[in-house]
């Protein structure tokens, strides 16, 4: 399957029609709403996906500490999953997961 390129208008900061008219754009292309990186889904950059095995996980949270994209989802001090909308598939979590635990495995994306 051919990887889908960024579609029009569904990805702020990429190709497609203008996200905002020049008369409404904040002066100097400043972004006024904080935390907007959430809107930018970088998950489709991934060629390898981390697959988490809940049964093996010891919840040491090393993956959470090292993830550069805040894509390890933790609730009440417990690893609960991976945010595939933003995970770029860098593999750092799989590498940092202790070898004797091995709860995260990188698998090739089907479209990659």
């Amino acid at each position: 399957m051919k990887r889908k390129l960024n579609g029009p208008a569904d990805r702020p900061g990429t190709a497609g029609p203008a996200v905002v008219g020049w008369q409404e754009m904040p002066r100097g292309c400043v972004i006024l709403n904080p935390g907007n990186a959430l809107e930018y889904q970088t998950g489709d950059w991934r060629s390898f996906r981390p697959v988490w095995d809940e049964n093996l996980c010891i919840h040491c949270l090393r993956c959470w500490i090292f993830c550069p994209d805040d894509s390890i989802v933790v609730r009440d001090g417990t690893m609960v999953g991976i945010d595939y909308d933003h995970c770029k598939g860098c593999g750092i979590c799989a590498r940092e997961c202790p070898p004797k635990v091995g709860a995260i495995e990188m698998q090739k994306e089907s479209g990659a």
């Binding site: 900061g13 990429t14 905002v20 008219g21 292309c29 400043v30």
Partner: peptide, 22 residues
């Protein structure tokens, strides 16, 4: 809190430049 100097690709750069011309 604001962001200055964001990446502005095909869907924003032109508007920023047009605004500067204005």
């Amino acid at each position: 809190p604001i962001t200055m100097g964001p990446l502005a690709l095909q869907n924003a750069y032109f508007e920023a430049r047009r605004q500067l011309a204005a």
